[in-house]
């Protein structure tokens, strides 16, 4: 349930507006969109796993207000670490994902999911480590889904004749509005599925 909500109704890009920059920036081709999304999923999962114990430590010591500073530094360090490890051990994967990795540090979807998890940990005790991992991977999968759908829409869009003043970004954003509209429809589907 949590997984599907994170993918469809709570889609990070189209419902929560997190990670719009890469969504608009690297969605020109399906292959690059997939590569970027896979890198995002990896970093999201690792970041969630790494920040969970740190967050517990911060909250226990009454330092919860340091969350933003600590998390962003951890994410930046993790991205570097992932890059180094990939380069050393899986150079093939590094070649295909490498260029997206520096982009991810400032992707607000990653910091967003970590902060949302931390907030939820504070508000209800019933959420545990497993919930957070499912939520993060679902959020990443939702990002992948949105990117792939939008990249295919954009490839179609480029073959069409668009009025000059709408060319480029405006047309892209209006296309995003329509894709987002279709995701809105999923809301009802998911609700019915689990009730």
């Amino acid at each position: 349930m949590l997984f599907f909500t994170a993918i469809l109704t709570g889609n990070f890009v189209l419902a929560r507006f997190l990670g719009i920059c890469p969504f608009l920036g690297v969605s020109k081709k399906i292959e690059t969109a997939v590569g970027m999304s896979l890198a995002v999923i990896c970093v999201m999962a690792i970041a969630t796993a790494a920040t969970y114990p740190v967050n517990l430590l911060l909250v226990r010591n009454g330092l919860a207000y340091l969350q933003t500073v600590v998390f962003i530094l951890m994410i930046a360090a993790l991205v570097q670490l992932v890059e180094i490890i990939l380069k050393r051990f899986i150079p093939a994967l590094h070649r295909s994902l490498g260029i997206y990795l520096p982009l991810i540090t400032t992707n607000c979807a990653v910091l967003g999911v970590v902060l949302l998890n931390a907030q939820r940990a504070q508000s209800s005790a019933s959420y545990g480590f497993g919930h957070f991992m499912v939520n993060s991977i679902g959020a990443g999968a939702g990002f992948l889904l949105a990117m792939v759908i939008f990249a295919s829409v954009r490839q179609r869009l480029e073959q069409n004749d668009i009025p000059a003043f709408l060319q480029g970004l405006p047309a892209t954003l209006i296309a995003a509005a329509l894709v987002s509209l279709s995701f809105l429809g999923f809301g009802g589907v998911v609700e019915r599925m689990f009730q």
Binding site: L14, F165, P170, A177, S180
Partner: peptide, 24 residues
């Protein structure tokens, strides 16, 4: 719909088009 996400994308797109037109 204007309060929902699609409306946000739409209004933003239109405003960029207007700004482009003014600046062009």
């Amino acid at each position: 719909i204007f309060l929902l996400p699609p409306g946000g994308f739409f209004v933003y797109g239109i405003l960029i088009a207007v700004a482009n037109k003014l600046a062009r």
